[in-house]
């Protein structure tokens, strides 16, 4: 059988299998995209300019709770203003490779306007340019293309500010006093996720400015898997018996960190500041598992994007009263935040 030969081939093949498998995952996810796209209202012919306004809304990963919440805001506003909304993105993959074909397809339907949350500032620029060339006005939400000079408006949350208020909330929960030292850790998804990076920068800047006693001991990545985030925090809890704070920088890390604190019976003893107001996270906030939860405002972003566009189209394409750059602050929620306010910022699930 020639074992030396077959086994060394096996080595190579195993690596290949792993590589191909990971590519395949992406392929499988993206290929299923067009099938399950949703549209909030039917809008076959958007062409007739005299007819009803049709707005195409395109984002990275449709199933992200953030975009689901944005959809709720956009759909409500569209209904209120009596316009059509086509909501379409890849179901699960946040990548220009999957976003561009979907955006192209949307433009081919000649919508009255395009609202887009680009997954990459450079890669999606041609799509935006093409829309503008076709006379289709463009709004950017959440993220933007490189050149936004011709974009009607850009509406986004402020992740850097979110990181800063997270530091404030953590310091407050730890009863920070100068002269003392506080060990904290940060759970991220990956070293390159842009929102994560901005939040971490804001967090670090605020600490440097106001809380010299806070020391970031370690940063670890979850690869967007809650179980990995959970394992990371479990490991930290043994590594750092004097740990005072955890910044769980996104929804996945929040889920994993919350479970770890509960498992170790450390709820209330370690200041856990999480991100994203998923319903489960808000419930855990009310049980004091989170000391604070930083909420974005996706519903408002969606709502404002539609409002801007409709105002522009109905005013004979006048930019009057439309702000070119809108930065919505991230909101700090704590266990003492009134229930009605919590409800307002909890990400709706369609």
């Amino acid at each position: 059988m020639g074992h030396r030969l077959t086994t060394s081939r096996l080595g190579r093949r195993s690596v290949a299998v792993l590589a191909v498998a990971s590519v395949g995952v992406l392929a499988a996810c993206s290929s299923s995209s067009s099938g399950s796209s949703t549209s909030s209202s039917t809008s076959p012919s958007a062409k007739g300019s005299s007819g009803k306004i049709t707005i195409a809304f395109n984002m990275g990963a449709e199933a992200d709770p953030f975009f689901i919440a944005m959809n709720v805001g956009a759909a409500a506003e569209a209904k209120k203003l009596g316009v059509n909304l086509i909501w379409q993105g890849d179901p699960s993959v946040y990548s220009p490779a999957t976003q561009i074909p979907i955006a192209d397809q949307l433009l081919a339907e000649h919508p009255s306007a395009l609202v887009i949350a680009p997954t990459d500032p450079a890669a999606l620029q041609p799509v935006v340019n093409q829309a503008l060339a076709q006379g289709i006005p463009v709004v950017n939400v959440d993220t933007h293309v490189n050149d936004i000079s011709k974009v009607l408006s850009f509406i986004t949350g402020n992740n850097q500010q979110g990181g800063a208020v997270a530091a404030d909330a953590m310091a407050k929960a730890m009863h920070y006093q100068s002269g003392h030292s506080y060990q904290v850790v940060v759970g991220m998804s990956s070293p390159t996720t842009t929102t994560n990076v901005a939040r971490l920068a804001g967090f670090k800047a605020e600490i440097a400015k106001k809380y010299p006693g806070i020391k970031i001991m370690s940063v670890a990545y979850s690869e967007s898997v809650a179980a990995t985030a959970n394992a990371n925090v479990n490991n930290w809890l043994t590594k750092y018996p004097n740990l005072k704070g955890i910044f769980a920088i996104d929804g996945t890390n929040a889920t994993g960190a919350a479970a770890a604190l509960q498992a170790h019976g450390l709820v209330g003893k370690i200041a856990l500041v999480g991100y994203d107001a998923y319903a489960t996270n808000v419930a855990l906030l009310q049980q004091h598992v989170f000391a604070a939860l930083i909420a974005q405002q996706p519903t408002l972003e969606g709502q404002m994007a539609i409002a801007d566009i409709v105002k522009y189209l109905r005013s004979g394409k006048s930019k009057a009263g439309i702000q070119h750059l809108v930065t919505l602050p991230n909101i700090v929620l704590t266990p003492s935040t009134p229930a009605s306010v919590l409800a307002k910022y909890t990400y709706p699930t369609a």
Partner: peptide
Amino acid sequence: GAATGMSLVLTGGAPIGA
């Protein structure tokens, strides 16, 4: 692909239960 997609569609990406 199917199971991943269905998980997302069912949950909207957020965890279920506490």
